[in-house]
Amino acid sequence: MATEPNDLGKYFIEHGNAGDVEGLVALYEPDAVLAFPPGSLATGHAEIRKVYEQFMAAAPVLEPGRQHPALVSGDLALTVVTLTTGELTVEIARRQPDGSWLWVLDQPMLVP
Rank of each mutant, 00 (worst) to 15 (best):
M1T: 02
M1K: 08
E4G: 08
E4S: 10
E4R: 15
P5V: 14
P5Q: 08
N6R: 04
N6K: 04
N6P: 04
D7S: 05
D7T: 10
L8N: 13
G9M: 12
G9L: 14
K10Y: 07
K10P: 02
K10F: 03
F12H: 13
F12R: 04
I13H: 04
I13D: 10
E14V: 10
H15W: 05
H15V: 06
H15L: 00
H15A: 09
H15G: 13
G16R: 05
G16Y: 13
G16L: 11
G16D: 15
A18Y: 11
A18L: 09
D20Y: 07
D20L: 04
D20P: 11
V21A: 03
V21W: 01
E22T: 11
E22I: 00
E22A: 12
A26R: 13
A26F: 00
L27Y: 00
L27W: 01
L27V: 06
Y28V: 10
E29G: 01
E29C: 04
E29H: 06
P30T: 07
D31W: 00
V33N: 03
V33P: 07
F36W: 14
F36Q: 07
P38D: 07
P38G: 14
P38L: 04
S40H: 10
S40A: 06
L41R: 12
L41I: 08
T43S: 08
T43A: 12
T43F: 00
T43G: 08
G44L: 08
R49N: 15
K50D: 12
K50W: 11
V51F: 14
V51W: 06
E53M: 10
Q54P: 08
Q54I: 07
F55I: 12
F55E: 14
F55W: 09
M56Q: 03
M56R: 11
M56F: 13
A57D: 03
A57G: 10
P60T: 10
V61S: 13
L62T: 00
E63V: 07
E63Q: 02
E63P: 14
P64W: 02
P64Y: 02
G65P: 12
G65S: 13
R66E: 05
R66W: 03
R66L: 11
H68M: 08
H68F: 12
H68P: 08
A70F: 05
A70M: 05
V72Y: 00
S73Y: 06
L76D: 02
L76S: 05
A77S: 02
A77F: 01
L78P: 01
T79F: 14
T79A: 06
T79Y: 03
V81W: 11
V81K: 00
T84F: 09
T84H: 12
T85F: 01
L88T: 11
T89L: 03
T89C: 04
T89R: 07
V90T: 09
V90R: 04
V90L: 09
R94W: 01
R95G: 02
Q96W: 04
Q96P: 13
P97C: 13
G99H: 07
S100R: 01
S100I: 15
W101D: 03
W101L: 14
W101G: 08
W101S: 10
L102A: 02
L102E: 03
W103G: 02
V104D: 01
D106I: 09
D106A: 01
Q107Y: 14
P108M: 15
P108H: 15
L110T: 05
V111T: 14
V111N: 14
P112L: 10
P112S: 09
